[in-house]
Each structure stands twice: as structure tokens, then as C-alpha cells.
Design a protein around this nucleic acid. Structure first.
Lengths: 152, 152
DNA sequence: CCCCTGATTGGCAGATTTTGCCAATTTATA
DNA sequence: TATAAATTGGCAAAATCTGCCAATCAGGGG
């Protein structure tokens, strides 16, 4: 992981579909060592995959919600159960374990408010063992980028 | 935006670099109409771009932080100033306007705790007009996907 | 200071993929 | 049902990918 690798990573975060030729030019390499570095980053798991960035509203998912959840108990069994169930819910795009007053923060995508109510009632509450839920809707997005800051 | 478009979108969210030929096969089209649909989704802004998914820790950014910020005043000028400044900060990958007790939630990536302290002192506080800051560090990630739920 | 070793690079060529064009098919509308 | 519009599939030229080999570079030991 040298400077060249970091350049490659940031270029592919900006445009994950750029051709290897363009990428090579952008980082001052010829195509073949450039491709070799990319494949290497993929094999080592530094680059975990590639994905299309899609406008959720245009797709029909107008509402983004951050849901913060606290469990009643934190024994191994209840924690495992919660995490396993959460992973299976398609509307949950992200779930992190957090410091602070709440245990988890979820990023959830739903078409409308009614769907959010159903999500909480039919997907979250049935898991059981939940002490409290705190919901914040996203009004607007000021910034959203996939490009990491240059580190050193 | 029909079923086929949604299939294409979800396939490209799973693997943004799959070849058009494979994509066409996955959605039961021949390559040329498939590519035409993709280009159309890009032109309409439904697909906003493509990006590499990178392991932050492997890149050297071990710490993910969600920062919730409340402003002192909400007049046009202070709000614009805050948002403009936040957009320029490389460590901030996301910033959303939120309902609830806090005004904004930021997703921030830094190499270590010291860098986070510097981030707050040198990047956030100097903006001014901030009433309160609430920090939650990410301990672990239970789920993270780019693939939207199928909407109807 | 030079040589040796291992790692990385650049160029080449065959295989694969993209992409614009046209005729044929399907879908929607009157 | 007839017509118009939109969408599709196939083809071929252009661009790209990717494995291989010789050349170059960086670092350590004598």
C-alpha cells in the first residue's frame, strides 16, 4: 500500500468504471502494471467491490431514515439474534455498532412514511429485546462522496 | 423506470464493473438494448456514478465517526455558511440535514483518535455558530450493502 | 563501489468487450 | 384492426483487457 495504490484507490472511488487505460494514465503507469496493482488490491480485500451510485428517490425510495436502537440486554445470545435478523432485512442498507447512548445505528430506505411504519412494526419490533428506538429522517443531503481523504 | 431498469440497477449495485454482456444476460436482454438502458439511466441521473468500495482500515483510516451537530441560529446566512464549509472538508464523506434534536449528521473518516480531535478543533469549531456536537464512534459494522430493496 | 536478487515495469498480441447502426419485433393508441 | 412509436437483436469496427516476456529499478551483502 504505497502512494500509487492510494492514487489508484481514490481514482476508482471517483469513477469505478474508468477504463484501465485511463486509470493508468491518471496515476502515471502503463496499463499492465496498473491492472496488476488493481487486481492485487482486490485480492487483498482492500478493494471489496464496485457499485453503481443510484438516486434513491428516482428509484422509488423517497425516504432515508437513520434509526438508532438500544437493546434491553447485551448477552451474546440476544446480540447475535438481533444482528442476524437485521442482516436479513432488505430495507436496512447499513447497520453499525456504536459508542454512546444507543447500541446500533441503521440506515434504512423506504418508499414512504407508511412503509416506514410497517418496517418498524413488522421487521424491527418482532425481533424482540429492544429497549428503545430513535428515528431521524433525512431532509436533505449536503454532501455525499465515496472518495477517501488522502491519508498522509 | 420499469422492472427491467430496476433489475439493471440492482445488478450494477451488486457489481458496478460487470461487463455489459453479463449484465444483459442477467436481465434477459441482448447487449445492445441493455447498454442503451444503462446509458439512459446515467443520462437521466438515476445512476449518478460508479465507485470502488474500499476497506477504510486497510487504506489507513481506522476510525469511522458519526457526528451530530446543532447550530445556534438557523438563519439563511449561517446555514449556508455551515454547509458550504462542510462540503470542503475531505474527512466528511456524508452530511445530511436531519429531523430531531440535532440539525446535521456527518459521517467522518480519520486515521486515529488524535486526528479526530484535530478534525473537531481545526475543521468544525472554526466554522462558528455551532451550539452542540454529539460524537458516536463506530465499533463494528453488522451490515453494509449498496443494493436497494426491490420496490414493488 | 559493484554485483546480485527480487520486485516492478512496459510493450506486445490474442481474446474479449463495447458501441453505433439498421432491420425486425413488440407495444401502445386510436 | 391499423398505425405509429418505442424497443429489441444482430452485426462489425473500434476499443479494451489481460497474460507473457524481456528490460528496468530498488535494496542488501560482499
Amino acid at each position: 500500500m504505497d502512494t500509487k495504490d492510494r492514487q489508484i484507490i481514490r481514482a476508482l472511488q471517483r469513477d469505478g468504471r474508468m477504463t484501465n487505460q485511463d486509470l493508468a494514465e491518471a496515476v502515471n503507469l502503463s496499463p499492465s502494471p496498473c491492472l496488476r496493482r488493481v487486481r492485487n488490491l482486490e485480492a487483498k480485500g482492500v478493494i471489496q467491490g464496485y457499485s453503481a451510485e443510484v438516486d434513491p428517490a428516482a428509484y422509488g425510495l423517497a425516504i432515508t431514515v437513520f434509526v438508532r436502537i438500544k437493546l434491553e440486554r447485551h448477552n451474546e445470545e440476544d446480540v447475535q439474534k438481533f444482528e442476524k435478523r437485521v442482516r436479513l432485512i432488505d430495507e436496512v442498507l447499513e447497520c453499525h455498532v456504536m459508542t454512546g447512548a444507543m447500541d446500533y445505528q441503521l440506515r434504512v430506505l423506504v418508499p414512504d412514511l407508511e412503509a416506514y411504519e410497517n418496517f418498524i412494526r413488522n421487521r424491527i419490533h418482532p425481533i424482540g429485546g429492544i429497549a428503545s428506538i430513535d428515528t431521524s429522517f433525512v431532509y436533505g443531503t449536503v454532501k455525499r462522496t465515496a472518495v477517501f481523504p488522502l491519508s498522509r
